[in-house]
């Protein structure tokens, strides 16, 4: 039974990772079209506004696409509505929307906009570590010795992928003003996705896993459109901000790419929701990270052809994958369950 649930958990999470990796292609491509392409050149506040609009529109598209093509196709539209309207369940997805949407997704978009999709995908690898540690605190999820060793190895792999010498060169180069915002975004995504996964699981505990990404992205959309965007518009100017939003929303290419992002990243998140209860958050994120980073970099190289695969990347990916296998092959130590049930065995 343990072997079977590991097999299925692993299966869902590997598919999630491949789709997640591919999603960086449409996420990067959206910045190739006007008016976003112009913002990349302009940098500064305008690029932050653009990142915010892209993140908000992604949440909107994810909520619609996942309701129609995930929950409904799986026969769970009623469960998705229940998970959304019953606040004692829905509130966990609201909290995870804050961490995963406002912090992680926006951070990832900033990292993509200011540095590039390759860095953005690689730095988020550290979310496995934040997720495992936060899961230990929030759920008393069991941390075995092999899991801890695996987490350390994966972290070292993540650092190698990021290429520390290139980071230092970028930060110290006066010509690359504002690049620190990209690194800050990367850290936001690493923390945000790790913590978000833990709160998602709190909701998944009592709700159907095929109907949980809809409330998660519905709340993210509300946070962006009802709270963050009006506040930002009040600061930078209503006319400027909403005319930029109007321009983005009137470009059909942007919608096409957002649908591709929803079908890759959105479905990936849904598959993670299916895998987490079977493997645990820490282990799930670890497997996800080890697979999605190489998948992202290979996808970017194959489809966009503008990335060199460096020796740092290959070395880091190999180390991260070894770390993941160390974690994965500790299943015999997991015994009956992932968490303390509050009862004596």
């Amino acid at each position: 039974m343990i072997s079977n649930r590991y097999k299925w958990g692993f299966f869902w999470i590997v598919w999630a990772s491949i789709l997640w990796g591919f999603s960086y292609v449409p996420q990067e491509l959206v910045w190739w079209f006007d008016p976003l392409a112009g913002l990349w050149e302009a940098g500064g506040t305008e690029l932050i506004e653009g990142s915010m609009i892209v993140a908000a529109m992604q949440a909107l598209m994810f909520a619609i696409v996942l309701f129609l093509l995930w929950s409904t196709v799986n026969g769970k539209p009623k469960e998705a509505v229940k998970n959304l309207v019953h606040f004692p369940v829905s509130k966990w997805f609201l909290v995870s929307a804050f961490w995963g949407g406002l912090l992680a997704m926006f951070g990832s978009t900033l990292a993509t906009a200011f540095i590039g999709a390759d860095f953005s995908s690689a730095i988020a690898l550290l979310s496995g570590v934040t997720g495992a540690l936060y899961a230990r605190v929030l759920f008393k999820e069991k941390l075995t010795k092999k899991l801890i060793v695996g987490l350390i190895i994966t972290t070292i792999g993540g650092i190698l992928i990021c290429d520390p010498s290139a980071i230092m060169d970028n930060i110290t180069n006066p010509a690359k003003d504002g690049v620190w915002l990209g690194y800050l975004g990367g850290i936001m995504s690493a923390i945000g996705w790790g913590v978000e996964s833990c709160y998602n699981v709190r909701g998944i505990d009592v709700a159907d896993t095929e109907a949980t990404t809809v409330p998660r992205y519905f709340w993210e959309m509300i946070l962006w459109f009802v709270i963050v965007m009006p506040l930002t518009a009040a600061i930078v100017g209503w006319g400027d901000f909403y005319s930029l939003l109007g321009e983005v929303m009137s470009n059909p290419n942007v919608y096409g790419l957002l649908i591709f992002t929803a079908l890759s990243l959105g479905v990936a998140d849904s598959l993670l929701h299916k895998g987490f209860p079977l493997m645990g958050v820490g282990r799930g994120l670890a497997v996800d990270n080890a697979v999605y980073v190489p998948a992202a970099l290979i996808s970017l190289w194959v489809f966009l052809k503008d990335y060199d695969i460096s020796i740092w990347l290959i070395a880091g990916a190999v180390v991260a994958i070894i770390g993941t296998f160390v974690m994965y092959w500790e299943k015999e130590e997991v015994q009956d369950g992932l968490r303390d049930s509050g009862e004596d065995d």
Binding site: M1, P277, L278, L338, S341
Partner: peptide, 21 residues
């Protein structure tokens, strides 16, 4: 049959996560 399997799977998930034994 579909919903019978869905509920069987819910119980399996909850067993793994310590909510039922």
């Amino acid at each position: 049959n579909r919903w019978k399997w869905v509920i069987r799977f819910y119980l399996l998930e909850m067993d793994i996560n310590g909510m039922v034994r």
